[in-house]
């Protein structure tokens, strides 16, 4: 390329490649390639999302305004907001909503705190650190179904591993499954087991990109390791922490497999008293155990509204964070 003289004028013409006459066919296809091809490359994503994401979501809203049964999906009776008013006076809905919230807190808060601590430890130079990283991630490769089957055996009342261990230290056996809080703690521990390592690695990655100077400066100021962790690491990790909180909250809102399979034959009831029935399980029960598609659709839209609420709160918080 011919290097122009080092002038600093703004009006130096940009080198525009001119198509020589006689090559218009070529430049037409070139023009198409530059303007249309990018849209073609992103089309598969949007097409599949429109067909299997957006359309079902909107259609769910429409169905939620009707009475529709599983056996006769083509027969629809307009009920307006009937499914919603019914839902709002249904104890099962409020029970499931509250359970989703409490199990969400039980499974998310300790999980993220432990992940933060684990990441801090994994960030040390250590023999076998590669092994530890893989080891804490392994539960993530286990499916919800397989993990829940193992844990429900370990949380068994009569022969469970956990009650046996508790017995060794003098604690009376706990009937995990039938209690309200005990069953929720057990389910929360399955979620925690599967996700702590994953989030620890996400935090670890963020920790390793914290600029060294910050630590050096604080070390010069005489900060201890704990002070460094609190005053340097945590503030630098704030966007990542927010990200994991949002992802975990979305996951908690949809919690399904663990409460469905934890009770064995209790299935979609979520325990004999519904003590661990979540919104996801209630949706499944209404649609595929009780065959009320309209009500299931109303629950789905309630979940959608909750997610929008979470997104709005997230947007508010992150704007505040960016300003701070």
């Amino acid at each position: 390329m011919a290097a122009p003289a080092l002038t600093d004028t703004h009006d130096a013409p940009a080198p525009v490649p001119q198509a020589p006459p006689g090559r218009t066919r070529r430049s037409l296809s070139d023009w198409l390639d530059r303007t249309a091809a990018p849209y073609a490359y992103v089309t598969p994503f949007f097409a599949v999302f429109a067909a299997f994401g957006l359309y079902p979501l909107l259609y769910t809203g429409w169905i939620s305004l009707h009475r529709v049964e599983l056996q006769t999906p083509d027969r629809r009776e307009w009920v307006g907001l009937g499914n919603y008013t019914e839902m709002l006076v249904d104890d099962r809905f409020w029970n499931a909503l509250w359970n989703t919230f409490t199990i969400g807190v039980i499974s998310t808060v300790p999980q993220l705190l432990m992940a933060l601590g684990l990441a801090h430890l994994l960030n040390y130079k250590l023999r076998g650190s590669a092994f530890f990283r893989v080891a804490v991630l392994t539960p993530h490769a286990t499916s919800v179904a397989a993990g829940t089957l193992v844990f429900s055996l370990m949380f068994g009342r009569d022969f469970g591993m956990i009650n046996w261990l508790l017995d060794l230290v003098g604690v009376h056996p706990v009937d995990w499954e039938s209690g309200h809080w005990t069953s929720q703690i057990a389910i929360g521990s399955i979620v925690t087991w599967r996700w702590t390592g994953y989030n620890a690695l996400v935090y670890l990655a963020a920790m390793q990109s914290v600029p060294t100077d910050l630590y050096e400066a604080s070390a010069i100021d005489g900060a201890s390791r704990w002070q460094q962790f609190r005053k340097v690491t945590i503030p630098s990790l704030r966007p990542t922490i927010l990200f994991t909180v949002v992802v975990s909250t979305i996951g908690a809102t949809q919690l399904f497999g663990e409460p469905l399979l934890f009770g064995g034959t209790a299935g979609a009831r979520g325990g004999t008293d519904g003590q661990y029935q979540t919104l996801g399980v209630l949706l499944y029960q209404q649609g595929w155990a009780l065959f009320h598609f309209g009500r299931a659709a109303a629950i789905a839209w309630a979940m959608f509204l909750i997610l929008i609420l979470i997104a709005a709160v997230n947007a508010l918080v992150s704007r505040r964070l960016r300003r701070a």
Binding site: P56, L57, P73, I308
Partner: peptide
């Protein structure tokens, strides 16, 4: 931005019409 926004829409929400489809 739209792509990222779709992450907020879990597939679980559309199962009823998907099942009918």
């Amino acid at each position: 931005m739209l792509v990222i926004g779709t992450m907020m829409v879990p597939p679980q929400l559309g199962v009823v019409p998907l099942f009918m489809l």
